[in-house]
Design a protein around this nucleic acid. Structure first.
Length: 272
DNA sequence: ATTGAGCGC
């Protein structure tokens, strides 16, 4: 028990929330007309100043984030989470207000705001702890005729699905039988593993494989993207890399990488 | 073999 009531309330929300364009439907289902919001976000918001901002555009900086949120009120600190070495943004961040009323107002006015190709999600940050780690599941051996609705049916009964991504073949557009399902809490994800791993679904023939998604895969992607950005910048985008060997060799060789990608910064009022 | 980015110093 984390001390928070699990009852869900319903809060009005723009019906057409999407993380990106039509081809990216992963975030869609979590943001239907009435988005469930846990009690602690509705009731116990007195004294809460710290917000988590999801679906930041890839190139949004801390300074830009600050500029956007300081329009509501004084900001104590502001950060975009990035790969430490490359500076590659993980697409989310935190804004801590000086006053709780401003945090509430920021949710009211900035949640759902379209910024470039993304729609920001603004909500109260939770205290970090074990119960909100390892919530993202990697699922394989799904039936090839799988739909998002069926994914919801399969996984939805074990907890609140925050986000899901049904992977499709790039050429044919057909489901690959692979999906990611992110739950709100660790125990929900674990319950889904316990109940569904090794189970053959009604319209399937193979036993599902359900496990915690690897998170270090993204480190490599960040490295790759960060290196590519730096490389293209210094070479005027004229040359291409040819393979992963080239990338790793370049990253590991002595360079000014750390100057080009200073890593994480926290912006405070005194920076302005 | 694992996406885009939902919990950090």
């Amino acid at each position: 028990m984390d001390g928070y009531p699990r009852t869900l309330h319903y809060v009005k929300q723009d019906a057409s929330w999407e993380g990106e364009g039509p081809s990216h439907s992963s975030a869609r289902n979590s943001y239907l007309n009435h988005r469930p919001m846990a009690d602690y976000q509705v009731q116990k918001n007195e004294g809460k100043t710290n917000l988590i901002i999801n679906y930041l555009p890839q190139n949004m900086t801390e300074k830009e984030l600050y500029s956007m949120f300081v329009t509501i009120g004084p900001v104590e600190s502001c950060r975009v989470m990035k790969d430490f070495k490359t500076g590659y943004s993980y697409g989310f961040g935190f804004v801590n207000y000086s006053k709780a009323e401003d945090a509430s107002r920021a949710i009211g006015t900035l949640n759902g705001l379209q910024v470039q190709n993304k729609r920001l999600k603004v909500s109260f940050a939770r205290p970090s702890g074990e119960e909100i780690k390892e919530t993202n599941l990697y699922v394989t051996n799904l039936p090839r005729n799988i739909t998002e609705q069926y994914l919801d049916m399969l996984f939805g009964k074990y907890g609140q699905i925050v986000q899901k991504n049904l992977l499709k073949d790039k050429l044919t557009g057909m489901p690959r039988g692979v999906a990611f399902v992110r739950f709100d809490r660790r125990d929900e994800a674990q319950q889904a593993i316990n109940s569904l791993n090794g189970v053959i679904p009604e319209n399937g023939t193979e036993p599902l494989v359900v496990k915690i998604a690897e998170e270090h895969g993204k480190q490599k992607a960040a490295y790759y993207a960060g290196w590519q950005a730096g490389y293209n910048q210094s070479r005027g985008s004229q040359q291409q890399w040819h393979g992963e060997g080239d990338v790793l060799a370049a990253v590991q060789s002595p360079s000014t990488r750390y100057k080009e990608f200073p890593g994480e910064l926290v912006w405070h009022m005194e920076n302005f």
